[in-house]
């Protein structure tokens, strides 16, 4: 597909997402924060349903050798980076999606959060240019590199390749785990005072 075609598909997808998120008030921050602080799960349930559909869809197509999975080595930086992100999103009251969506609704605080997200990224680029960690994607090998705290590359497709078991089988397993969590939330909601 041409670059213009890719950008067009991305824009159309983004527009539909922006519209649906705006109309549903979905928020990824609330999906975690509200479950932790207020024991309410409106957004958590939506997140889990999406993850179940995506797991079946992605692993199904990976079984057939289709799709464009993200391809880079992973390591401790994913855990530490998303820890910082998790603290930040609760303090800012918005994640990457809701900053854009709230900005579109005229929320100046969300625009401010976006501005400082960009500044945070630029500050990280200065730090990276000093210590070169985590390794740049061009230097990634897919194999563990413990000196650089990297564990290599693995997903449902590599599991299929390694064990000869279709990726969808692993996907069904993950979906069942997500379903158990979803059902546990429904049970908890029913036990809450004021539930029907």
């Amino acid at each position: 597909m041409s670059i213009v075609g890719e950008c067009l598909v991305a824009f159309i997808f983004g527009s539909v997402v922006g519209l649906l998120v705006q109309r549903s008030r979905f928020c990824n921050t609330a999906a975690l924060r509200d479950a932790i602080l207020f024991k309410t799960y409106r957004n958590t349930k939506a997140l889990l349903v999406a993850m179940m559909i995506l797991t079946i869809g992605f692993t199904g197509f990976l079984t057939l050798g289709d799709g464009n999975p993200m391809h880079f080595d992973v390591g401790l930086n994913q855990m530490v980076g998303l820890f910082l992100f998790g603290v930040g999103m609760v303090l800012a009251g918005a994640c990457t999606v809701s900053t854009w969506v709230k900005s579109g609704e005229g929320n100046v605080g969300a625009v401010w959060a976006l501005l400082f997200t960009f500044i945070g990224m630029f500050l990280f680029s200065l730090l990276w240019s000093y210590n070169y960690w985590p390794p740049a994607p061009v230097s990634m090998t897919g194999e563990p590199n413990l000196a650089a705290l990297q564990l290599g590359y693995s997903n449902a497709a590599t599991l299929q390749e390694k064990y000869g078991i279709p990726a969808i089988v692993f996907g069904i397993g993950q979906t069942l785990v997500l379903l158990v969590i979803y059902r546990a939330i429904l049970r908890k909601e029913r036990q809450q005072p004021g539930s029907k």
Binding site: N28, L47, A50, M51, L54, T55, G57, F58, T59, L62, P69, M70, F72, V74, N77, Q78, M79, V80, G81, L82, F83, L84, F85, G86, V87, G88, M89, V90, L91, A92, G93, A94, C95, T96, V97, W112, A113, L114, L115, F116, T117, F118, I119, G120, M121, F122, L123, F124, S125, P134, P137, Y153, S154, N155, A156, A157, A167, F170, G171, Q174
Partner: peptide
């Protein structure tokens, strides 16, 4: 919060969206 999100995304190479709607469903 904004600074932490920006710094965290780049350190991790991923954001919350790629985590929940990309990497994890790919079982990465």
């Amino acid at each position: 919060g904004g600074l932490l999100m920006g710094f965290g995304i780049r350190l991790a190479f991923v954001c919350n969206v790629s985590t929940f709607f990309g990497l994890t469903p790919e079982m990465n």
